[in-house]
Each structure stands twice: as C-alpha cells, then as structure tokens.
Simulated scan of single mutants.
Amino acid sequence: MPVDQIPIGTFSQITRLSQKALRLYDERGLLVPAARDICTGYRYYTFAQVERGIRIRHLLWLGFGLSEVETILDARERGDAGTIRDLFRARLAETEREVGRLHAIAEVLRVQDPLNGGFRMSITEPVIKEIPSLRALSRRERGVYQEAIPRLIGELCAYVYPADGRQPAARVAGPIMFVCHDEEYRETDADIEVAIPITGSVNLDGSAIEVRTLPGGRFVSVLHTGPYGGVGKAYERLFAYMGEHGLAPAGPSRELYLNDPAEVPEDELMTEVQFPVTDLPLSP
C-alpha cells in the first residue's frame, strides 16, 4: 500500500467520521476515496482528503444537512462566498430561534406548576363582545410564528415611534395584535398578520406597511395571564365554550398583547384571545 493511502479505519479515527458515514459520503460523491481495493472493495484515502473530511464534520456539527454541506463545499471550490454567507446567515437565524425556544422551555421548567401542565397562568371565563371594525396599520407575510411575530411587531413599532425623534407616524388606538389567518397550525409558511389599531391620518411613505380595516362583529374573548407558551389553554377554553353555547368560528382569531414582555415578568404577561363567532344552525 502506498504511504499516502490511508485505510478507511485510520481515516475514520483522524476525521472523527464513522466508517458508516464515510461509506454514505462515498455514495453521495461528497467524499470519494482516492483508491479502492479491486478484490475486497476496501476504501483508501489520502492525507490531502483529511481537510475535507474534517470540514464536513465541522459543518455537520454546526447543524447543516448533507445537501447544504455539499452546496457549501462546492461553493468554496468555486470561490462563491455569497452562497456560503447566505447559508450561514440562514443557519444562524434558525439556531437563534432554537436557542430562544430552549430558553423559554428552561424558564417554564424552572418555575413550573406541576398541576397546571408546567405553566403559571390564569384564564378568565369567556365573554361575548361586540367589537367595532378597526382601522389599523398592518404587516402580513408568511413565515415562522416565533420569528415573524416579534419582528413584524418591531417593524410596526419602529414605524409608529420613529427612533430619530420625528413625530409619530400615526396615533395608536389599541394594543398590538396578531391575526392568525390559517385554519391549522403551521410549523413554517404560516400566514401571519400583525396589526396596530390607529386613528387619524397616516403617511405610509412607500413602506411595506399598509392601512386596512379589521372587521368587527360578535367575538368570544378570554384573558390569559402567563407565558405566551401557555396561550393554547386559552384557545382550548374558547372552543369548549363555543361548543357549550352552539357557536362556531366565523373568521381569523386574534391575540391582543396587553403589556410589554420587556417590562413585566413572563407570568404577568397578559394576552386577550378573541374569536369571531356565529350561531350554529339549529338541528331539524
């Protein structure tokens, strides 16, 4: 065996990639052995391939999938830094979302109430409200709830309260709200709208923000106090109430954020959940 050929077992030890993984990378063309024994099929690598093997392991450790690893390594060979930057930026955003989710889980576990599913919270009894139509600043897009909602809130707040000291772009007439247009929960590609009720004139100045009228009508409402992660219990209570009173959803639900998470502890966060409703038809 030539001195510059490394058996797959030794190469596995050097790169910290299992032999099973190396066989898979060979099949995918990601890391093809420099030589193969004709009789046994045994794989041999060169010292020049060690760097690529270590780079693959590092990218996998960062959380990239194999297809992304292939794209990154191909881009590196072409000198395409832009593609690599875009992939790293997307991976960073995904990692930060996961970090935020894990921090929220850790906080719930730290202060959990075992008899209440891990949440310190309270939910008021549902009430029926007649809510007028609302003129509102709105931003709507598809995305991931945990990332899109706080970002869209930030964009609307920055527009209403300019950081450069200019006069507010609009007069706020109610709490920030999230309007859910999907009929089911979506991990990705959710139809997300964030809105702030306003009065008076507003200058959009070419912004992606728009002014629209949120429809009024009859809504069933509850007030949830506690971490945002427990708001699902409010929906559970609303749907139970609708079933008990012969009501059916008649449009998108709304979550109204009544205080600022930067100013109050998680267990004091107040979220009003509203659902437009209509009477179910009477059975014949």
Rank of each mutant, 00 (worst) to 15 (best):
Y235C: 03
S283P: 03
T188Q: 15
G217H: 01
G53M: 06
L258N: 10
G246N: 05
P150M: 07
G251M: 02
A104V: 03
F11P: 13
R237Y: 00
V231Q: 14
N259I: 08
L214E: 06
N259T: 10
F47A: 11
C157P: 00
I38L: 12
P162S: 03
E70A: 14
F119R: 06
E96A: 06
S221H: 03
E27I: 01
Q49W: 02
V172T: 07
P197C: 11
V273F: 05
S253D: 09
V231D: 11
D26V: 08
P281G: 11
D182P: 07
Q5E: 09
S253R: 04
G29V: 13
S122V: 08
E266F: 05
I6M: 05
V108I: 06
S253C: 12
D26M: 04
D80H: 12
Q146T: 10
E77C: 07
L102I: 07
V194W: 03
I38D: 14
P2H: 06
V273T: 13
R171K: 05
I8G: 08
L238E: 03
R151F: 12
G217Y: 01
Y25H: 08
Y25E: 04
E255P: 07
P2Y: 03
P197N: 06
R28P: 10
A163I: 01
V211T: 06
L30C: 13
V144K: 09
I105H: 07
P215T: 12
A208C: 01
P249I: 00
E183R: 10
L66H: 09
L17F: 11
S201W: 01
Q13H: 13
Y185D: 04
I209S: 01
V202H: 00
A163M: 02
I128K: 01
A34V: 00
E268G: 03
L22E: 11
Y241M: 07
I72A: 13
I209A: 02
P2Q: 13
A148N: 02
V194G: 04
R97D: 15
G79L: 03
D74R: 14
A75T: 07
E183F: 04
A250R: 00
A93P: 02
R23A: 08
P33K: 08
H224C: 03
E184H: 13
A81P: 02
L269D: 03
T46M: 06
Y241G: 00
T83E: 15
Q146L: 11
A48Q: 14
P168E: 01
L109V: 09
E255L: 04
R16K: 15
D267M: 11
L115W: 09
R85H: 15
E141P: 01
E94H: 12
D279T: 07
Y25V: 03
D260Y: 05
L92H: 14
M242Y: 03
Q19S: 15
Q274A: 10
R91W: 09
I198L: 00
L31M: 14
P281R: 10
V99W: 12
D26T: 11
R97N: 14
R142T: 03
L24D: 09
F119N: 02
V194P: 04
Y235E: 08
P162T: 02
Y145L: 08
D260C: 02
V127M: 09
V99L: 15
R85S: 13
E155Q: 12
I105R: 10
R166Y: 00
E183N: 11
F11L: 12
E266T: 01
V220I: 13
R151T: 09
C39M: 05
V108D: 12
H181S: 11
I84N: 13
G9Y: 09
